[in-house]
Amino acid sequence: MNKKEIFVNAAFKENSIWRQILGICSALAVTNLMLNSLIMGLGVIFVLALANFTISIIRNWTPRSVRMMVQTLIIASYVIIVDVFLKANMPEISKQLGPYVGLIITNCILMGRAEAFASQNGPLDSMIDGIGAGLGYTIVLLAISFIRELFGFGTIFGLQVLGSWWTNWSIMVMAPSAFFLLAIFIWIINTHYYKAKA
């Protein structure tokens, strides 16, 4: 596979959220505001790209028995960087994201990509795969949070787009809407997928 194929494959064809249903904890939790989703997505892209890169570099020297632990520690180190950066530069957003930044470590996407791709491929390819997978994740987050923020607050990225006539749907701010929207999202994509296959 060439570099472009790797990227497209990771971002769309094998998209972690809608094809593999991985990493949806944070996809549900941070999508009440678009800005939160964007920051979270960028954080995941950063961690995925660099963790994949590092795991790929040391893949030939990692004993199989401690592989999982080594991968987790590498991922955790990059997550700490993201967390410290957010705390220092965007304290407000860091507070809103709360534990979900730290929870990138246990996000199944990270382990999934490390196992499925980085432990078998070269560093550069792995990095591209990481960026692609992270981008696919970010797109889903932004799509869900677009609907939730628009209907829940009448805003997009904090800018008022729906006028004063708009009544906010408080359900969009609450937890159940996240489940419903993600389900509908998966439904649409899967129907399309089965149609394309048939």
């Binding site: 249903i21 937890a175 489940f179 419903f180 389900a183 998966i186 439904w187 994509i189 899967n190």
Partner: peptide, 23 residues
């Protein structure tokens, strides 16, 4: 169950209804 919803999709909708109850 509609084919596209099978598996994760329908589980998420059920979970959403459960979450609604817990609200």
């Amino acid at each position: 169950v509609p084919i596209g919803l099978r598996g994760a999709g329908i589980s998420l909708i059920i979970t959403g209804i459960m979450a609604l109850g817990f609200v």
